[in-house]
């Protein structure tokens, strides 16, 4: 069996300067704390970070901005971290805002081989400007493209040694769909159990979507 379980620093060594990186989480719930910490320490730069938000100033993903590691952001809600608007207004970073449901579906689409899809969300608003519009049954829809990544950093609660994953409460959020949408998926988990221990009916992310499993050091 190929060994997927590795140390957090070794896992982070798979990230290159300029990579597009998806990071799970919503606010400070469900983001892979120790992977983000290790990425901040690694000094990797020119990153495109694809995430719901950017944590808080200097906390969680906010650290990557404080460290000037970010080239661009794709996400939907940066009001919890005012550093983002400052960096955007001063031209230090690019920001692409996508409505949250469109963002989620675009990530899911990338994972399941769908290049683009029509959604009613944002029709008639500033966020649909420049996008293709089509009417189905009298209702207006906006064409949105799938969002892909080089690496996904996700958080789950329990993994088996193959990388099957089980989540915990609202820490699930974007993690299962990001696992499907990246070329390399690295999962930070609280616990690793032997094969055959997880109930197959309870597995949320099948191991086919997970390349690397790292165990959280500080529980």
């Amino acid at each position: 069996m190929i060994k997927k379980v590795m140390d957090i620093d070794e896992a982070i060594s798979y990230i290159k300067d300029g990579d597009r990186i998806m990071v799970g989480g919503f606010g400070l719930a469900g983001y892979p704390e120790e992977l983000v910490e290790a990425l901040a320490k690694s000094g990797k730069k020119n990153l495109t970070i694809i995430s719901n938000d950017l944590g808080s100033p200097g906390i969680g993903l906010g650290k990557l901005l404080t460290n000037n590691q970010i080239k661009a952001l794709i996400g939907n809600y940066y009001n919890w971290n005012p550093d983002v608007a400052d960096a955007y207004n001063s031209g230090r970073i690019e920001v692409k805002l996508v409505p949250q449901g469109t963002f989620a579906e675009a990530i899911r689409a990338a994972g399941v081989g769908i290049p683009a899809f029509y959604t009613p969300t944002s029709a008639g608003t500033d966020l649909s400007k420049g996008k293709e519009i089509k009417v189905f049954n009298g209702k207006t829809y906006v064409l949105e493209q799938a969002i892909h990544a080089d690496v996904a950093l996700i958080k789950a609660h329990i993994a088996d040694e193959l990388g099957n994953l089980v989540y915990y409460k609202t820490a699930r959020n974007f993690n299962p769909i990001m696992a499907m949408a990246a070329k390399t998926t690295i999962a930070q988990v609280d616990k690793i159990v032997p094969l055959g221990t997880l109930n197959p009916e309870h597995i949320v992310t099948p191991h086919i979507f997970v390349n690397i499993v790292t165990k959280r050091r500080n529980l």
Partner: peptide, 10 residues
């Protein structure tokens, strides 16, 4: 000062 849409449009 604001940069966010969240789930409002959906």
């Amino acid at each position: 000062k604001q940069l966010g849409v969240g789930g409002a449009m959906d």
